[in-house]
Write a protein that binds this DNA or RNA. Structure first.
Lengths: 145, 145
DNA sequence: AGTATACCCCGGTTCTCCACTGGGGTTTTG
DNA sequence: CAAAACCCCAGTGGAGAACCGGGGTATACT
């Protein structure tokens, strides 16, 4: 399980949108990028991908920005990484055909392992992640005292 | 879960060694490479790595070659991929520190997903893989008739 | 002994992909 | 109408994967 920079940035950005979900006002790319230490021009591309998948909504023009496309407890981590990592990694898997029986069997095991990992990512939502973060923050304060 | 070329080659080679495990005579790189369509000079490097980890034994000189280091049912797929993929991928994970609380939480979830995938790879041994291959071969024959 | 056949070690090369940057648009608010 | 934001497309630099090659060393067979 490799966590690509892309996926991490996307999750951090969505987590930031989750934190401000109740306010109902859009968050700007600049603010998200500054808060999470993400290159803003790069984040722009990721948000565009997330928008096409409906995970975020955008509001154009001055005072514009981004909002979550759905409630935070209805967006799973699996959706996010499938959206971000999905399109370009699938053709590379398809193009190299297993060509031998051994290859087929190996692939099947790999798919089983992948499904096991996906199951974990599917049971967590953005809300879960935000709650975990809050709990972690409380812990940090206690240790500080 | 990406299956790298390296890992697949290593598994196919070990599977070939498993098939000839009872004979007790070493298999040469050339034979393995030809049988599984692997570039032989590349396979050489992978076998060297597997040898340093004790997963295979080598016999030098004429009539030399490679043998499994242990019984096929005592080698798990997880060991193999950790051996092959392990050393160079870990420093890249360590070097980028999470730096934010959000980053930490995301990493933890990712590790949980990784452990779920590893659990699958750990429950399969080379013997299991060889049996799966044989069962698949039988199926192919039945469909052919 | 000598030679052919294997493994062994180290380095280089090519190619692809990721992370990132930049230039120009278009839409909306004030 | 101008500033602020999103939008689209294209390019670049570096790292790593896949692969190739040269030269060495150990061992079996004759």
């Amino acid at each position: 399980m490799e966590l690509s920079c892309k996926s991490e940035y996307a999750l951090l950005a969505l987590l930031e949108l989750t934190a401000h979900y109740d306010e109902g006002e859009p968050l700007q790319i600049r603010q998200i990028a500054a808060q999470q230490n993400i290159p803003d021009r790069y984040l722009e591309q990721l948000l565009a991908t997330l928008r096409r998948a409906g995970l975020v909504r955008s509001q154009r023009g001055a005072k514009g920005g981004y909002l979550l496309g759905r409630e935070p407890w209805k967006i799973t981590l699996l959706e996010v990484i499938n959206c971000i990592e999905g399109l370009d990694s699938q053709p590379s898997e398809v193009m190299r055909e297993p060509k031998s029986v051994e290859g087929m069997v190996v692939r099947e095991i790999w798919q089983e392992a992948g499904r096991a990992a996906d199951a974990v990512l599917q049971k967590y939502t953005l809300k879960d992640l935000a709650e975990k973060r809050d709990a972690r923050r409380q812990l940090d304060i206690m240790y500080y005292i």
